[in-house]
Design a protein around this nucleic acid. Structure first.
Length: 196
DNA sequence: GTATGGATCATCT
DNA sequence: GATGATCCATACG
């Protein structure tokens, strides 16, 4: 049987976005549904810094119905639909600072049978090694938009301390000028579930 | 292993 | 009507 976890306090998210992106590595992302609980350790993230970041949806303080939640205080979820997939971000920064951290990959931990069922025909390694994949494995949808990460059904709990953290350019933002070169992607060295 | 193109839809112009 | 913070199948080496 699965055991519930203790969510990290709201204060955890109260730090600079780049720092938060690194702090999230090794933490446990948990989603509870009627089918049961599924969770995975965060092994890859990307920071998006709002106004001055051409790759961010909130570049130039762009404020629309979709990005509205990024102007909220840190610790809430920003889900976004990309083609046929849903992506999940953790909102960072103070209120009116539209920054966020994209969760790119997880290492499956609990609810493995559920993930297998949600990712039929895929190898275990392909269950959560990409932003669009992990949301499917954990059943994260647009219904989670705006949720606070400190209570079920969707929350982040303490995981383990990563050994080595590496950083590099972000992925999939080739048309964003200089912003594509910023080393704002972070991952745990040697982890098999990191994308690419 | 790398490279390429199509799927498919919410959101924005 | 155009645009993706992607994924997958296919082709090729």
């Amino acid at each position: 049987m699965n055991q519930a976890h203790e969510p990290l306090p709201l204060e955890f998210y109260n730090k600079p976005t780049i720092e938060l992106a690194q702090s999230l590595l090794g933490c446990l992302l948990v989603k509870e549904t009627e089918e049961g609980l599924a969770s995975g350790y965060i092994v890859e993230t990307e920071a998006y810094k709002g106004p001055g970041d051409r790759a961010a949806h909130s570049y130039g303080n762009r404020r629309t119905k979709r990005t509205e939640i990024m102007y909220h205080e840190a610790g809430v979820v920003y889900t976004y639909t990309m083609h046929t997939h849903t992506l999940i971000n953790v909102v960072s920064g103070e209120a009116d600072e539209p920054e966020a951290v994209l969760i790119r990959a997880l290492e499956p931990h609990e609810g493995l049978a559920l993930m297998e069922k949600r990712r039929i025909g895929k190898k275990p390694r392909d269950w959560t090694n990409g932003p669009g994949k992990l949301t499917k494995a954990l059943s994260i949808t647009m219904n989670d938009y705006g949720r606070t990460l400190t209570a079920p059904p969707l929350y982040i709990a303490k995981g383990y301390e990563p050994q080595d953290i590496l950083s590099g350019p972000r992925i999939g933002i080739d048309n964003s000028g200089e912003a594509r070169e910023y080393p704002w992607r972070f991952w745990i060295k040697g982890n098999r579930y990191v994308s690419r």
